[in-house]
Simulated assay, not measured.
Amino acid sequence: MKILSTRFSARALASAALALCAFAATAQPFPSRPVTLVVPFAPGASADGIARIVGRELSTALGQPVVVDNKPGGGGATGLIGVAKSAPDGYTIGMGATGAIVVNPNLPDAAPLKPQEQLAPVAKVADIPLVLVAGAKTGLRDLRGFIEKARATPEGTSYGTTGQYTAQHLAGELLASMAKLKLVAVPYRGSGPAVTDLLGGQLPVAVVDLTSAYPHIKSGALVALGVTSATRSAVAPEIPTIAEGGVPGYSATAWMGLFAPVKAPPEAIEKLAGAIQAVVAKPEVQSQIVGLAAEPRYLGPAGFKSFIHAESDKWAGVIASIPAPQK
């Protein structure tokens, strides 16, 4: 009996020691070790560049290393699925963008990611300016002229996009709906090829990212009809918004933000959000983000969550109105 009692006491002491160690680990203030930032895009892309700027500065703000881990695939969903399945302790976060968060979940063949159920919004970081642009050979000079010409073309006006259900495509479909136009989407593999056909006269207009079009807009080879955001772009403040140009209330924004697993501790999310807010407020960080043709645009956890709900509802309605692609 004495031997059993001794063994039991030893086991009890060992268990108590482990429990104390676990308690000590959880009692440490967040963060007490490195944070992993999953970027679901390939290295070298503008989204990757923004994530690395934020990650570097966030490391300084948190006092712990922030390790960027690129996991591209699935239109930005693959890496976020990994984030959703990670330990909900705040030490794994991910960069999410418009497509994976509010567009893809509304598609019939959606990836197995349910952002509003599996991910906790931490902070919105940046907006990605898009622009409706016309080739100089079209003779178009502003949005009103384009709308008049499109309404006088009953068979429909072609416009270039960066692919089916991308932010560029949906921005065009929203314009068609709000301005009561018949627009025919022509998918390209990115903004670059669409801009090439605009310059060559094979395509009248396109919705592309401002980065690809802006040099040609400045040279006069392309004509900017309007940016798709609700406010003018800091990258090109001389270009009016589509809402200003004649479609009141129009807004179609591409954006990026940070997410944690849905059950991450609220105190960890608040700590991350506060650090990100301080980072995005830095003038040198803002200039670096603008240098990548994006715009710093912070929203905290609650505001970002409401924004995502509204965006998802908006794009669900637009997607439902688009005829299914021909197979």
Rank of each mutant, 00 (worst) to 15 (best):
Y165M: 02
A126H: 13
P154R: 13
L183Q: 10
M178H: 07
Q168Y: 08
T161I: 08
M178R: 10
M178Y: 07
Q168F: 00
A110Y: 03
L119V: 01
V122T: 15
A150T: 01
D127F: 05
I101H: 05
L140A: 02
V125C: 12
G135H: 11
A136L: 09
I147Q: 05
P112D: 06
Q164A: 04
A179W: 13
L181N: 14
V133A: 05
K114N: 08
G145D: 05
L174N: 01
L170S: 00
V184L: 11
A171N: 10
V131S: 07
K182I: 02
S177F: 08
V122N: 02
P154E: 12
K124A: 15
F146Y: 12
I147M: 13
L140D: 08
A179M: 13
G135V: 00
A185R: 00
L175M: 10
Q164K: 05
A185L: 05
G145F: 02
K114F: 06
D109S: 14
G145S: 05
T161N: 11
K180F: 04
G172I: 00
R144F: 03
A136K: 15
P121S: 04
L170P: 00
L130I: 07
A111Q: 09
L183I: 00
T161R: 11
V184T: 14
P129G: 07
T157Y: 06
T138S: 14
A123Y: 15
T162N: 13
A136M: 10
P105T: 06
H169D: 01
G139H: 11
P121R: 01
T162P: 06
E117G: 08
G172Q: 03
L140N: 07
T157G: 13
A126D: 15
A126S: 15
R151Q: 14
Y165K: 01
A152H: 13
A123H: 14
L175K: 03
T157L: 15
L175P: 02
A126K: 06
I101P: 04
D109T: 12
E148C: 04
K124L: 15
H169L: 03
I101E: 07
G163N: 10
P105G: 05
P112Y: 04
V103F: 03
A136F: 10
P108F: 13
V103Y: 02
D142I: 10
A123T: 14
S158V: 05
A126Y: 02
N106F: 09
Y165G: 00
P121E: 07
E117N: 11
H169C: 00
T138H: 12
E173S: 14
S158W: 04
K114P: 06
Q118E: 05
I147A: 05
P154M: 03
A150K: 06
L119Y: 00
A126W: 02
K124E: 15
A111D: 09
E155L: 14
P121C: 07
A167D: 04
A134L: 08
A110N: 06
R151N: 09
V131Q: 15
E117Y: 09
K114Q: 13
A171D: 10
Q164T: 13
V102H: 02
L174C: 08
V133F: 07
L113M: 09
T162L: 12
A126V: 01
G156D: 11
L181A: 14
Q118N: 07
A110F: 10
F146A: 01
K137G: 11
L183H: 01
